[in-house]
Simulated assay, not measured.
Amino acid sequence: MFNLVRNEWMKLFSRPATYVMTGLIVLAVIAATVITLFVQSLGDGQDITWQSQLQTENTQLEQTIATSETGFMGQNPEEQLAINQYALENDIAPNRAGSFWSYLESSTFLISLIGLFAIIVASGIVAGEFSWGTIKLLMIRPIARWKILLSKFITVGAFGLFLVAITAVLSVILGLIFFDPGSSVRLVFEDGQVIEKSMAAYVIRVYLFNSLDVIMLTTMAFMISAVFRNSSLAIGISLFLLFVGGTATSFIAMYYDWAKYSLFANTNLSLYEMNMPLVEGMTMQFSIVMILIYFTIFIALAFTIFTKRDIAS
């Protein structure tokens, strides 16, 4: 199996497109850093301390509570007020824009770009063998078909992790160089009290949560590539769902509870950290089970059809 994966990895990096995708990720991280620094420079002239900012925000929150209004994005104004007061009393500066940790958190949007590249690789890694006619060269070797397909799937996953690692490491390096350290403490309101948690653990969770859409759609693209042997179809469907699936599911969920059984209603686990499930009654355990069910279906279809279909057909 190791030799199969190494062979697929060597084939992947023998293509110029692989280096282009890697280079674009590096450029995207640098560009995001430059844009963040530029936006930060626009507000550098304002000599306002974080304590005064929180006090002003607390005044607004008290007005919101007095009028019984809902906070921004459904946040509980009383909980946010308690967090702000705790920060002021314990001298814990919040990680606002311009801090190292807020920069790392905002850099997670690049995972969508990584997903785009992973989908392209997953769509062509099987279908390309049929298009180029090299699939027969693989099949004449005394190796089980499922091992060949598994090595390709592992290669796709490894390439995605490779791009995520580049993004994370480069973001950390640039963040340490250009941004203020910020606070390593994240304040959250749980069980009626404010609790201090690790900011590093939170950023890691954000990376993982944002990766779920990418992982599932990459797996879908791999399945379509193996079943239909058509990379264009796999890329088209997967990219359409990547950019439209979440929005469409959110719209449907406003009117129908059955939307909770769709894939995209369950991949955004960060909603549970904000106590904002897409459909009332949904839990993180339910979403994890649904994700595993979809993942199993995609993998079962890919391996079953690939191992039983006549290659010459």
Rank of each mutant, 00 (worst) to 15 (best):
I35H: 15
G23T: 04
L4D: 03
V39N: 14
Q51F: 03
S99E: 09
A32K: 10
M21R: 14
L54D: 01
E57P: 06
G98F: 01
T18S: 13
Q85F: 05
L24I: 12
L27N: 06
V39Y: 09
I35G: 07
Q63W: 03
A31F: 13
G74W: 03
E8D: 06
T70M: 07
D91R: 01
Q40I: 07
A32H: 09
L24V: 14
A93H: 04
G71E: 04
M73T: 00
E78D: 09
T33E: 02
T67W: 02
P77K: 04
N58T: 00
Q75Y: 13
S14R: 15
A93W: 01
S14H: 15
S41Y: 03
N7C: 12
G98I: 05
W50C: 11
L61F: 05
G23I: 06
T70A: 13
V5H: 01
N58I: 10
A66V: 12
L24P: 08
Q75R: 14
L88A: 03
L12W: 00
K11M: 05
P16I: 12
T33H: 00
F13R: 11
T36V: 00
L4N: 04
M21P: 01
E8V: 00
Q85I: 08
S52C: 01
L61M: 04
T33A: 12
P16D: 04
E62W: 01
W9I: 06
G43P: 03
N58C: 03
I83M: 14
W9E: 07
T49M: 12
N3W: 05
T64W: 01
L27F: 08
A93T: 11
E79W: 06
G74L: 03
L27M: 14
V39T: 14
Q63Y: 05
T67C: 05
Y86D: 08
Q80A: 13
Q75I: 03
T67M: 11
G23S: 05
Q51V: 11
L42E: 12
N95A: 07
Q75S: 15
W9A: 07
E79K: 13
T36Y: 06
P77R: 02
D47H: 15
E89R: 04
R96C: 00
F2S: 13
T64N: 08
R96G: 11
A28R: 09
Q51A: 08
M21W: 15
L54F: 06
E78T: 13
M73H: 07
A32S: 15
Q80D: 14
Q53S: 15
G45P: 06
V5K: 02
N84E: 09
A28H: 07
L54R: 06
I65K: 00
A32C: 10
I83Y: 07
S52I: 09
S68L: 12
A93F: 00
Q53N: 11
T64P: 04
F13K: 10
G71C: 00
Q80T: 13
L81M: 12
G74T: 02
L27K: 05
P94T: 07
F2R: 09
P94D: 03
T36K: 03
N76C: 09
S68M: 09
Y86F: 13
L37F: 05
V34R: 02
